[in-house]
């Protein structure tokens, strides 16, 4: 990086530092410019996807207002509520599944334990989209792809497979000493009590991580939800809604509103992500310290 050796070691180090800082600033600019542009576009007054200047020439709040007042083509608040409802149910079910499976594979001895873990690993290897159409056919055969059962179908889609995603949680539970279970067992605790009164409280940071991660799933997925909701726009989730705002027939009017909607969705998701990272790091410190 710094080729010039000017004077002693100190001068060289300072040059190197300056170069590094410049490099980092440039990197961060590259990383942030698209988001900055997105935010600026969301305040742009006017229509159309393509404009001739980087920054808008006129600013307005109407794009945000339109998302919450104009419902004839896209009902953004309803999409938001749909996604929120689906995400809440999904996160309860998946967290319960993941915790059950992790506890059983980490703490208990049972005959099918190893086969189950191998099966989960194999299932994880199948590309998720491979069975997507088949899942749709199955839900259709169960009569769950019409009308108000669509949200239920989405909840199933997002949470049914979570029984295979237990590796991180299991790894965490493995760090809890077995002697704690044994001690509780001596004191007359049943396995269920050990699970609810000892293991779960010790896993708190990891549970928070798991809850938020599965809560975010429905917000960021657009493929599964799109296959199930098809054209039933009243059951759209936020991501399908935003996606369809950029379809050819809408993009001219809706591009700036897409930007506004994207900002509104991204902020909470980004904050939640930061929270998960905090808890994840805390969790990686180990379950029982000392």
């Amino acid at each position: 990086m710094a080729k010039k050796v000017s004077g002693g070691m100190k001068a060289k180090r300072i040059t190197l530092d300056v170069v590094t800082y410049v490099f980092l600033v440039v990197m961060c600019l590259i990383w942030l410019i698209p988001f900055f542009w997105l935010v600026m576009q969301s305040f742009r007054d006017g229509k159309g996807q393509f404009i001739s200047t980087f920054l808008p020439t006129a600013y307005t709040l109407n794009n945000y207002k339109a998302l919450f007042t104009e419902f004839d083509v896209m009902n953004f608040p309803r999409m938001f509520m749909n996604t929120f409802f689906i995400a809440c149910c999904t996160c309860v079910i998946s967290t319960f599944f993941v915790l059950s499976v992790s506890y059983c594979t980490s703490r208990l001895k049972w005959k099918m334990r190893k086969p189950y873990m191998n099966m989960a690993m194999v299932l994880n290897l199948f590309p998720g989209f491979m069975s997507m159409v088949a899942v749709y056919f199955i839900l259709k055969a169960l009569g769950m792809t019409e009308g108000n059962k669509i949200p239920l179908a989405m909840i199933i889609c997002f949470s049914a497979g979570s029984g295979t995603g237990f590796y991180v949680m299991k790894g965490y539970m493995d760090t809890i000493p077995k002697s704690m279970d044994e001690a509780a067992s001596m004191d007359g605790c049943t396995h269920w009590q050990i699970f609810t009164k000892i293991t779960l409280p010790l896993c708190k940071p990891m549970i928070v991580y798991q809850v938020i991660t599965s809560f975010m799933g429905p917000w960021v997925d657009f493929v599964f939800a799109k296959v199930i909701a098809r054209t039933n726009s009243q059951y759209f989730t936020v991501s399908i809604g935003l996606w369809s705002m950029l379809e050819k027939e809408y993009v001219d009017t809706w591009f700036v509103r897409f930007c506004a909607g994207a900002v509104l969705v991204s902020i909470p998701i980004a904050i939640l992500f930061m929270v998960t990272q905090k808890f994840y790091q805390e969790a990686m410190g180990g379950a029982v310290k000392g």
């Binding site: 059950s100 499976v101 159409v133 899942v135 497979g161 029984g163 295979t164 269920w192």
Partner: peptide, 29 residues
């Protein structure tokens, strides 16, 4: 089911969901 067989209770819902919505679709596909 709450003590020595707790794994049967805990593993049943995730496994059933996996069977119907992951394994069956894969076999079908």
């Amino acid at each position: 089911l709450l003590d020595e067989n707790v794994h049967k209770l805990l593993m049943f819902p995730p496994t059933a969901c996996l069977a119907v919505f992951t394994v069956l679709p894969l076999l079908y596909m």
